[in-house]
Simulated assay, not measured.
Amino acid sequence: MPVDQIPIGTFSRITHLSQKALRLYDERGLLIPAARDICTGYRYYTYDQIERGIRIRHLLWLGFGLTEVEAILEARERGDAGTIQEHFARRLAENERDIGRLYAIAEALRRQQQDPFNGGFSMSITEPVIKDIPALRALSLRERGVYQEVIPRMIRELFTHVCPEDGRQPAARVAGPIMFICHDEEYREADADIEVAIPITGPVSLEEAIAGVVTLPGGRFASVLHTGPYPAVGKAYERLFAYINEHGLVPAGPSRELYLNDPAEVPEKELLTEVQFPVENLPPSP
């Protein structure tokens, strides 16, 4: 064996990459051995490949997937700093969201210890009522994605139109609270059909076609007001569906969550969320 060839086992110990992983990276073309024994198929690497192996392990430790690792290393080889920065910026944003979620979980667990019968949440729910809500003209964004990622971003995008910070005239006059509309019939971890809308009135002036003007249908809605952290709003849905069932009603369209105050201005325990469900009477039995 030449001096500059390192057996796969030794290379594995140096780079802290398992032999199973190294075989996978070979198959993907991510880290191809410099030589292979014709008889046994045993893999050998060179000292020059150690840096690439360690770089792969570091990127994996940072949370990148193999496809992203491949893209980053390819960008590095062609001197494309912009692509590398985009990948790292996206990963940083994902980590910051995860940190926020874990912090919220930690706070809920602390509250759970203090109040073991309240599920870790301080909240209140009003008695459900039936409302007749007129059709609403609104600025709207709709796309598919993950709730925790898409909803905050779309809210920020809509507010750039109605509350611009750069001196521009607002695109429209706000006529109600911002809302999230769920168009799926079941909960989806990813690829959820999400709409965020702000009711508006008067003329509309959109310089960029980022948001659209829609008419949200009116009708009879069962409504309940939830006070407390957003992660606990499921209790409001539970109470609302019990009410719908008790009164012989059935859901007749997508649900809405109306955010009545700003999480940047009030503590979590004072957040107000109105949950609305369009309803109709249960059809008579045949």
Rank of each mutant, 00 (worst) to 15 (best):
G79V: 07
A71N: 14
H58C: 12
A108S: 14
P267G: 04
L158D: 08
R52E: 06
L271F: 11
G176I: 06
E77D: 08
T15I: 04
T15Q: 02
R153I: 10
F221I: 04
I105C: 06
V250F: 05
Y103Q: 15
I14Q: 03
R239Y: 09
L73Y: 02
G212A: 14
Y230N: 09
V129P: 00
I181M: 02
T40I: 01
Q19H: 10
D191G: 05
T40S: 12
A106F: 05
D37A: 12
G41K: 02
N245L: 14
F159M: 15
G248P: 06
F117R: 15
A264W: 03
D26M: 02
F180Y: 14
E274Y: 00
E157G: 10
I56K: 04
G176C: 04
E51G: 11
P283K: 04
A222K: 09
I72G: 08
D4V: 11
I130D: 03
A93F: 07
S122G: 14
H87C: 05
P203D: 07
R76D: 13
E157A: 15
D80N: 10
P286N: 11
A252H: 01
A232M: 08
D26R: 06
G65L: 07
Y147F: 12
L109W: 10
S285V: 13
G120A: 06
T67C: 11
E86Q: 12
G9D: 00
V204D: 01
V279A: 01
Y187D: 06
D48V: 12
G100Q: 12
G63F: 04
D80F: 10
A252K: 05
A222E: 09
L225H: 01
L206W: 03
F180H: 13
L62S: 11
G234P: 02
N245W: 13
N118W: 12
T40R: 09
V204C: 03
E27H: 08
I8R: 00
Y259G: 07
P134E: 06
L249C: 07
V279E: 03
S12T: 01
A71C: 09
E265H: 05
R137S: 06
T215I: 14
F159L: 14
R13K: 12
D191P: 01
E246D: 15
D80Q: 07
H58W: 14
R23N: 00
R91D: 04
S255T: 14
R13V: 03
I155G: 08
P231E: 11
L92T: 12
P2S: 14
E96G: 05
L158M: 07
